[in-house]
Amino acid sequence: MLRSYLPILIFLVLATGVGALFVAANSWLGPRYKRRPSTFAEDAYESGLPSEVQHGFRFGISFYLIAMLFLLFDIEVVFLYPIAVQLQAFGTFALIETAVFIVLLLVALIYVWRRGALEWK
Rank of each mutant, 00 (worst) to 15 (best):
V103I: 15
F57P: 04
T98S: 15
V107G: 02
I66Y: 00
I8D: 01
W113R: 03
E42N: 06
A67H: 01
R35E: 15
G48M: 11
L49H: 13
E97Y: 12
Y5I: 10
V13L: 13
G91A: 14
Q54H: 07
W28H: 06
G48W: 08
R36Q: 12
L109Y: 14
F11I: 12
V100C: 07
F70T: 11
V53L: 08
G91N: 11
P7T: 05
S47E: 12
Q88M: 12
P50I: 04
G60Y: 03
T98W: 00
S51K: 06
V53K: 08
T39Y: 09
L2P: 00
L49K: 15
E42F: 04
F11H: 08
V100M: 10
K34D: 14
Q54C: 06
R58F: 09
L69C: 04
L87S: 14
I102K: 06
L87P: 00
T16V: 09
L65I: 10
A99N: 10
I102D: 03
A20H: 05
F57A: 12
L95G: 14
L6F: 14
S27R: 11
N26S: 13
S4K: 12
S47K: 12
L14I: 15
Y45V: 04
P31G: 00
A15V: 11
F90L: 15
A24H: 12
V78P: 00
F70N: 09
V23Q: 03
F90K: 09
F40T: 05
A89K: 15
P7C: 04
A67M: 02
L72G: 01
V13P: 00
L105V: 01
S4M: 08
P50S: 09
F59Y: 13
T98H: 01
F90R: 09
I10V: 15
Y64A: 03
L87W: 07
V53I: 14
S62R: 01
A67I: 01
G56W: 05
L104S: 08
P82L: 08
L65N: 04
F73R: 00
V77A: 14
I10L: 14
G48A: 11
L29N: 08
P50F: 13
F93E: 08
V23I: 08
F40Y: 06
R36V: 13
A108Y: 00
R3S: 13
E42A: 13
I61R: 08
F22N: 02
F40E: 15
V103K: 03
I110G: 03
Q54V: 07
A89R: 15
A24C: 06
F79D: 08
E76Q: 08
N26K: 11
E46Y: 13
P50W: 11
I96C: 05
I75M: 13
F22V: 09
A94H: 02
V78C: 05
L65C: 03
L21F: 15
Y81I: 15
L109N: 05
T98K: 01
L9C: 06
V77S: 10
I8N: 02
G56T: 07
F101K: 01
R35P: 00
L95E: 12
L72Y: 11
S47Q: 12
G56L: 04
F101H: 04
E76S: 00
T92D: 11
R32A: 06
F101Y: 15
A15C: 06
R35M: 12
V107L: 14
R32G: 09
I8F: 11
W28Q: 09
V103T: 15
L105E: 03
S38F: 02
P37H: 13
L106K: 02
